[in-house]
């Protein structure tokens, strides 16, 4: 029930934003009609397919994730500057590495946030998911600091609230 209300609210907002017609007495009352029709059809079909759960409608604890994103933004900026410096050197001097990083998050969402954070940070990309960790390709040896990965993993675990399970 919460999920269907949330989905309806998001879809209505999306329709109003994209169409720009939010009065019934406007030039095109038809636009609002189509909007109502599509929102109702989408919510009904989603409910009928039984995929109306936490994964489809991620109503998350917003504050910890927002704090985490601010921290992650600083990391991304610093790593981006490092990658640009590496690329702009007159001679390319990189030492790529494959690293395994243990993933100790308690929830599936924590794993997803951690893997996505690693990919978002320039210089490191998650290549594969193994049973107890991630396989990561790093552009240079300076990006493979285990302490940095451990801090990011702990922070993503806290931000995504380990008590809740996705899937």
């Amino acid at each position: 029930m919460t999920y269907s209300v949330g989905l309806t609210a998001v879809l209505v907002l999306l329709w109003l934003t994209l169409s720009g017609q939010y009065t019934l007495s406007g030039d095109y009352p038809l636009v609002i009609g189509f909007g109502v029709l599509s929102v109702v059809a989408t919510v009904a079909l989603t409910a009928r397919m039984r995929i109306l759960d936490r994964e489809t409608v991620p109503i998350l604890p917003a504050l910890p994730l927002a704090m985490y994103w601010i921290w992650l933004g600083r990391e991304i900026l610093a790593a981006n500057l490092a990658v640009v410096k590496l690329v702009m050197k007159p001679e390319i001097d990189v030492e790529p590495r494959l690293v395994r990083v243990p993933a100790e998050q308690r929830s599936g969402l924590g794993h997803a946030v951690f893997a996505n954070s690693i990919t978002l940070t320039p210089g490191t990309v998650t290549i594969d998911v193994e049973e107890d960790g991630f396989l990561i390709h790093a552009l240079d040896t300076s990006f493979t600091d285990p302490a940095g990965f451990a801090e990011m993993g702990a922070r993503s675990d806290l931000a995504s609230d380990g008590k809740r399970k996705v899937l």
């Binding site: 991304i76 900026l77 981006n80 990658v83 640009v84 690329v87 390319i92 990189v94 790529p96 990919t119 978002l120 940070t121 320039p122 210089g123 490191t124 990309v125 290549i127 390709h137 552009l139």
Partner: peptide, 19 residues
């Protein structure tokens, strides 16, 4: 253009783009 192999190029193409 400059980096040597596919995996290193991926860092430049996919991620610097995002920021």
């Amino acid at each position: 253009i400059r980096l040597p192999d596919f995996y290193t190029r991926m860092h430049a193409a996919g991620v610097t783009d995002t920021l």
